[in-house]
Design a binder for these strands. Structure first.
Length: 289
DNA sequence: ATGGTTGCGCTGCAA
C-alpha cells in the first residue's frame, strides 16, 4: 500500500502536473495540502478525473488559502474535517486538517500553521495547534499516520544550512518538542538516518532548488505498527523539477512491499559532506516558507 | 545584485 503526501500550492494551478503524477506513481492514499480551493470548486474540478483513477475524495477547504484533501483507493471511512479541539486563528477555523480511515490506518492530511515570526501570535497559534492535534491523535485509533506539510524541520540535518535559520520559525526547540510529543516515528528519517538531501521544500526564489538549498518539513509520522511495515520511504524530487512546479515535493511511503521498476529512484541522492557545515553565508530570502 | 517567485485576487499579503 502506497501513501503519498504533497503540498501542491494550489490544486487548480497544479492540475496539469497532479493528474499525470497520480498515474505515474499510483499511490493508494494521497494527502494534499494548500489546495487553495473551496470544497465546491475542488469537487467541480477533480471529482470526475479522480473517480476515473479510482479515488474516493474528501476535501476540506476555504478558498484562497489553506485547504486539504484525502484521496483513497483503499477505503475512505469516517471522514473528519478538522479535529476535536482545533484552535481558531483570529476567530476563524482554518481548513488545515482532514482525516479518514483508509486501508485500516487513520490517515491525517495536515497543513500545520507556518508560524511566521518567532513569538508572534501566529507562532503561538502554531504551537497551540500542534498541542491540540497531539491530544486529538492520542484519543484516536492506534494505527495512525500524520502526513503533510508539518512546517517544522525535525533536526538540523533537515536544513541546508542550520546557521541560516537562527532566529527563524520551523527550527525552534518549542516546535521540535511538539513533534516529539506525538510519540510517532518519522518514517523517512528512520529509513535514511544519515542523509541530508532528503529535503521536501525549496523556496521558489533565488535558485534555491537548483542549489539544493532545501528543508525537510513535509513528513509522514507513523505509529510503530505502521512504521514497522515501511518498505520504502523517499522524496519524489522529480516532481519539483520543470515548469510551474509546487515549491514542495511529494513524500512517498510504501507499506509491506516497495513498488519497483519504472517508478523512480527510492534512494535519495548522496549526502554532500561539508554542505551543512555552513558558514551562514547563505541568507534566507525572507521569513521561512 | 541588500536582490530573487508564485498564487490569490486586485493591492498587498502569505508562503
Amino acid at each position: 500500500m502506497r501513501i503519498a503526501t504533497w503540498n501542491v500550492n494550489s490544486a487548480k494551478q497544479r492540475m496539469p502536473r497532479l493528474l499525470p503524477w497520480l498515474q505515474q506513481r499510483r499511490p493508494d492514499i494521497v494527502c494534499l495540502q494548500e489546495t487553495k480551493l473551496t470544497d465546491a470548486a475542488f469537487h467541480d474540478l477533480f471529482d470526475s478525473p479522480l473517480a476515473e483513477l479510482g479515488y474516493e475524495v474528501a476535501h476540506h477547504g476555504q478558498g484562497g488559502y489553506n485547504g486539504v484533501a484525502l484521496l483513497s483507493r483503499v477505503g475512505l471511512d469516517d471522514v473528519e474535517a478538522g479535529f476535536t479541539g482545533q484552535p481558531d486563528y483570529d476567530g476563524r477555523a482554518e481548513a488545515r486538517a482532514v482525516s479518514a480511515t483508509c486501508g485500516g490506518v487513520r490517515v491525517h492530511s495536515l497543513y500545520v500553521p507556518n508560524g511566521r515570526e518567532v513569538g508572534s501570535p501566529h507562532y503561538q497559534y502554531k504551537l497551540a495547534w500542534l498541542d491540540a492535534l497531539a491530544v486529538a491523535v492520542a484519543a484516536g485509533p492506534a494505527e495512525v499516520a500524520l502526513c503533510g506539510d508539518i512546517n517544522v524541520a525535525p533536526a538540523d540535518i533537515d536544513l541546508f544550512d542550520p546557521a541560516a535559520f537562527e532566529g527563524h520559525t520551523h527550527v525552534t526547540e518549542a516546535e521540535r518538542q511538539r513533534l516529539g510529543a506525538f510519540g510517532l516515528i518519522d518514517v523517512v528519517r528512520a529509513r535514511w538516518p544519515e542523509h541530508d538531501s532528503v529535503y521536501s521544500y525549496w523556496d521558489y526564489r533565488a535558485g534555491m532548488f537548483h542549489q539544493d538549498y532545501g528543508m525537510r518539513i513535509d513528513l509522514v509520522l507513523a505509529s510503530g505498527s505502521v512504521a514497522d511495515r515501511v518498505a520504502a520511504a523517499w522524496v519524489d524530487r522529480a516532481a519539483r523539477k520543470g515548469r510551474l512546479p509546487s515549491d514542495h515535493a511529494p513524500v512517498i511511503v510504501d507499506l509491506d512491499v516497495a513498488l519497483d521498476g519504472d517508478i523512480g529512484p527510492i534512494v535519495p541522492p548522496p549526502s554532500k559532506p561539508g554542505r551543512r557545515a555552513g558558514s551562514g553565508k547563505v541568507k534566507l530570502p525572507h521569513a521561512v516558507d
